[in-house]
């Protein structure tokens, strides 16, 4: 009796929250997880479809600019997905199909920029900078290793006459 009463009370108190949570969970399950490839776009041949998917995760949707055409819901991404599949059906190799899209939309459509003279800085500058840093470090370490030796050589040498005189004046001054 008391337990039933407690349950009823709990339901009254937490019912609203529970229902909201449940609704959110259902909504979350209903929204597909960032997969924009629509069923009617898919190819019947699973091997071709797998190739199309593999290619399209490396192609940029030019409307959204940082999404792949595989993920984007933009109309252009849809057109490119269909175009890509048409090319594969027509017998293109992967690189031919990609080249057909690059010919139309330029290298920017590739999410991974190709290595070519215009992108040498992009690809090699980090290594160049790292090399500069290592070179700088080596020079700096060598100098700081060489410095103690130089100091030691200086200390081993006896003072000459003028140095001795200067030392005496300095010591005399500090006596005051």
């Amino acid at each position: 009796m008391r337990a039933a009463h407690f349950l009823q009370d709990a339901r009254r108190r937490f019912g609203l929250h529970a229902r909201i949570l449940l609704a959110l969970a259902v909504l979350g399950a209903a929204v597909p997880a960032a997969r924009a490839v629509e069923p009617n776009e898919r190819l019947a041949n699973p091997a071709l479809e797998a190739r199309a998917r593999a290619i399209s995760v490396n192609l940029r949707c030019l409307v959204c600019q940082n999404e792949t055409i595989d993920e984007s819901n933009a109309g252009l991404a849809h057109d490119l997905r269909v175009f890509l599949r048409q090319r594969l059906l027509a017998g293109d190799t992967d690189s031919q199909a990609v080249q057909a899209i690059v010919n139309r939309y330029g290298d920017f459509v590739l999410l991974k920029p190709p290595v070519m003279p215009a992108t040498y800085i992009l690809w090699f500058a980090p290594f160049g900078l790292a090399l500069c840093g290592v070179a700088g470090l080596v020079v700096w370490l060598r100098r700081s290793n060489a410095a103690p030796d130089a100091d030691a050589a200086l200390l081993a040498k006896p003072l000459n006459a003028s140095e001795q005189k200067r030392l005496e004046t300095l010591l005399k001054e500090s006596d005051h």
Binding site: V63, L76, L80
Partner: peptide
């Protein structure tokens, strides 16, 4: 169907 636009490289 937008195919001519696609061949021109139209993106919007």
């Amino acid at each position: 169907d937008g195919s001519v636009g696609l061949n021109f490289g139209v993106y919007g």
